[in-house]
Design a protein around this nucleic acid. Structure first.
Lengths: 196, 196
DNA sequence: TACCTTTATAAGTGAACACTCACATATATA
DNA sequence: TATATATGTGAGTGTTCACTTATAAAGGTA
């Protein structure tokens, strides 16, 4: 068997996990199945991660680095709020669609997880995103772009329903699903709420 | 051990399942745990349901009889569309809050389930509700109550995000969560989309 | 070349899982 | 009271699970 250093193996293991999640689902995510997909023995998995939980935590960390931080950059940028919101939204939808395994992990495991620390970390990602969104909307309202009447927290809660429902739509995996179109259509509805 | 007829036992078993789901979560839903909660042996469970899957299917059937049919009555009633929508929405939120176990089952197991028939049945409930909602909105639009510009299917997709996100909020189980208020707040946002 | 660290495997461990079955007995009916 | 049936138990089944361990050997370094 070809030998690879831990860092390379870790990446391959996490890719296998995402692959299994998006094609076979949460219930098929066993160490045995991961090992099969990577092409090594079960024991080899434990050479690079100390437990199954550690693999999932590492993936959540990647979501933070690869998505949430990027969204934070958008929120803190000098773009006008309307453009910010759209970019923020698109980044999220695109990420979810190109990382279906992670989506299932985020929105299903947050509920299903029996480990409280893992659940906590998953919910932290969702909460962080919600807070960034509130920051953007607040700015738009202050600038007089959007209605002062809407409750920003309610809007943010409402907004988070879109990725949540997208998760279900991904599982339904409709053949004729167009992510670009989905983003635009949902954004139209979001704007209808915000507009004065 | 006190003996009860199958129908009574089935109800008790299903209650135990919902109880476990809402307090311990999906991962603790084992036959052993159900039997413990009911106060019988594992074998006794199989006297009344032929498999674990059959228990879940029976519960989904109850959701149809106790919620979806009631929502259909609302949709087909002579109430004005705005009142229909509010009643429809409240029935759903109330049901979800008083049957937290079922909510977790609907929105998490639909994604997590490895059994395709079970998944299908869960998604059928969600689809049926979505169709009823579209019927109500269509009526309101035709009557000129709501904007002709909104895409009814998009609105229905958007709407389904609310119970999906409520599911996550239920798991977070915030102490100061007020269902009545939540319903009203979310409904305000829904109306903002619909209004011309 | 000899040696050492890292990466791998194969064969385990015990626990949990859904589910079965021989057998027991409460309860309804004859 | 005798009998049949429905409801219960407890000790199994085989499978899968996450994880461990003894051992091997690849690959870099001396």
């Amino acid at each position: 068997m070809k030998r690879l250093d831990t860092e390379t193996r870790q990446v391959l293991i996490k890719q296998a996990v995402q692959d299994i999640l998006s094609t076979e689902g949460m219930s098929k995510l066993s160490i045995n199945n991961i090992a099969l997909k990577v092409g090594v023995s079960e024991g080899a998995i434990y050479r690079h991660f100390k437990s199954k939980k550690e693999i999932l935590l590492s993936i959540i960390n990647d979501v933070f680095d690869n998505l949430v931080i990027k969204q934070q950059e958008v929120a803190n940028s000098t773009l006008e709020p309307s453009k910010k919101l759209f970019t923020f939204f698109c980044k999220q939808i695109n990420y979810l669609l190109h990382n279906k395994g992670i989506t299932i992990l985020l929105f299903s495991q947050a509920v299903h997880a029996n480990d409280s620390y893992l659940k906590e970390q998953l919910l932290k990602v969702l909460q962080f995103q919600k807070d960034l969104l509130k920051q953007i909307v607040k700015e738009g309202v202050i600038q007089g772009l959007w209605s002062k009447q809407i409750d920003i927290d309610d809007f943010a809660t409402f907004y988070m329903g879109i990725p949540a429902i997208l998760n279900i739509e991904i599982v339904l995996s409709k053949e004729n699903f167009n992510p670009e179109e989905f983003s635009n259509r949902m954004f139209v509805l979001l704007k209808r709420i915000l507009n004065p």
